[in-house]
Write a protein that binds this DNA or RNA. Structure first.
Lengths: 343, 343
DNA sequence: GTTCTTGCCGAAACCGGTTTCGGAAACGAA
DNA sequence: TTCGTTTCCGAAACCGGTTTCGGCAAGAAC
């Protein structure tokens, strides 16, 4: 049987109300009594029933996460790790995770509203921050706690966790430059997402830092699948003066580039260098293993959970912004610039 | 503002208690009143606050799902679709989905207990039924509602949804036999999971049905990754008398076989036929596209949700068992048996 | 015309918490 | 000593539901 606040009161010779106020840090309870109560709570392993308090306070101690079915493809490889991180981060603070899904924007907002109205979530984690993010504008207006996985240009009211993809792109260029590459191509990811702009900037800054020129014909945008990568990779490799190295904003796209290269008899790592970003599993098993900047999605989930909990507890969003660096995994897909064959 | 049972009572000129009993189908409320109340509920869009009722009834209208971190690799491709299905199925009945995670068996059971104790879940969906399933034995004893994704030999108290992988394996063999194949290999999946035994049986039955002999050296067990598939595929193909076709219990493993075949200069679909099971995305983009039996994980999630809800509502587990056939996708990896080269 | 059922609903307690309010005791100041 | 403050806790209302219990009125039985 569960221990209730009544049991606590009886064990301490106090009333429910005193116990409650002691645990919630009310100022009209003596330090001594507070200590006694907390000790007893520890001893009896008392935890208030979240939905019992919810009926008065409106808060359930649960975090909401709504998956958007439209971009499942993109979420697939990350989701398991990410969820593990979130639920882990949530549970260490006594929170749980409520997951829902929606297939379009209308349904999405409705889902959010329902979860809030029914007290199924005290706030939301918003994965995959977009440039023009409907969720953000809705929550900002309604003053609902939320945290973004990703950043936002118009950052008023936004808390977030993100991996600095721009630094990764920047460093990728420097790494390739050190290997002697001059003509470096760039294949960016989905433009609806906020990260795309950042990564492009990172690439451009990197090129500037090592005094390379960003050739317009070597930059492509909005590639999100392996097929995109294959197609765009083909375009790059079929140029009269093709790049000797390609930076991809997404691992999956890089694997498409692998195919385009293979079709043309080019060996990745010697004839063509590729650096990408994400750290998906398939990358390490590709031939050759993909050099990439790896993202720890589990950590991201865990951090997002604790940030959201702090947001729910009233901390201002500006204080709840974290970014972290991706981990460089130097593997087989990068190598010194090939000796120019006589043209 | 939310409409409460008090608002309902006022609007109807009744008391809260009458409204409550009317909605919950108590026999001491006249049919007429019940109708009036239900009409008004519809009109005002009244939905009882789940955690307000939970404090008395103990049930929150939420389904629990605990992810096991150990087999993330295996879950990855399915998880998003599966979750979408579950949350969809749950929400149509006014339920929500609570997700947690655990990294080992001890933590797993503890997580279940906590979710139950805190009323965060009324029952559980247990993905990936295992041969010797700790979760099942615990819940059976404790009389906690649950449904399995997969079946169980000792089926007392078990409700489930499953895809008939055994039929798929059976039909795969028949299909290959029609194409003229005699020597057919089989690479089974993870033996800790319940499906492995079923699929092996299906393969064996299929072989018997078309009067092929199951050659012991052509059967391998417990292959779960692409690497496993590559390794085992190599063994099969390096046999003095290799199979002309291979049935794989798992798509991912089949893609490993692709590699082994490529390394040996064998063309899939002509030199070697491969049939697999799961319907992962990568299969359709392989060269050649993988012939497989596709599983609809979203449907599975949705069905599991409704089955669990019915289980929670008191229906006996025996009445809550569903299986469904996998969808055959004939693509490029199967073809007529190659003309035997002169040995 | 009583009495006994039966059908139907209201009153009130309860679930496990939170929060407001008021008052007793201890303390400080006059 | 007396009076005004504080300090600290108990009493009670409340949150949004559920459930037990009791009683009134209409209909059935005698």
């Amino acid at each position: 049987m569960r221990v209730t606040i009544g049991d606590m009161a009886a064990a301490l010779g106090l009333t429910k109300s005193t116990v409650s106020r002691a645990l919630n840090g009310y100022p009209d309870i003596s330090a001594n009594t507070k200590l006694r109560v907390k000790r007893m709570a520890e001893e009896l392993n008392y935890m208030p029933l979240s939905h019992a308090q919810a009926i008065k306070t409106g808060r359930t101690r649960s975090l909401g996460l709504v998956l958007q079915l439209s971009d499942h493809d993109a979420q697939r490889p990350f989701l398991a790790e990410f969820l593990a991180g979130v639920s882990e981060g949530a549970s260490t603070e006594g929170y749980t995770l409520t997951v829902a899904s929606a297939d379009n924007d209308l349904h999405l907002i409705e889902t959010f509203r329902n979860l809030l109205r029914d007290g199924k979530a005290d706030g939301f984690i918003l994965p995959r921050a977009m440039v023009d993010d409907l969720r953000v504008s809705v929550f900002r207006d309604a003053d609902v706690p939320f945290v973004l996985y990703g950043r936002q240009d118009n950052d008023t009211g936004c808390a977030w966790f993100d991996v600095r993809g721009e630094d990764a792109m920047h460093n990728a260029v420097l790494h390739l430059a050190e290997l002697g590459h001059q003509r470096i191509g760039f294949i960016n990811g989905g433009l609806i997402y906020n990260y795309a702009g950042l990564r492009r900037d990172g690439f451009v800054r990197g090129m500037a830092a090592c005094e390379r020129k960003v050739a317009r014909e070597l930059v492509f945008e909005d590639a999100v699948t392996a097929e995109d990568g294959e197609r765009v990779g083909a375009k790059l490799l079929d140029l009269p003066n093709p790049p000797t190295a390609i930076v991809c904003a997404i691992d999956r796209v890089a694997l498409g580039v692998y195919k385009a290269a293979a079709d043309r008899g080019l060996k990745i790592g010697t004839d063509l260098s590729v650096v990408a970003y994400d750290g998906i599993h398939e990358g390490s098993h590709a031939q050759p293993p993909l050099t990439t900047y790896s993202v720890d999605n589990r950590q991201a989930g865990a951090r997002l959970a604790t940030l959201l909990i702090r947001r729910i507890s009233g901390e201002p969003p500006e204080a709840l912004r974290e970014t972290v660096a991706a981990t460089f995994l130097e593997r087989g897909s990068t190598g010194p610039v090939p000796q120019p064959t006589h043209t």
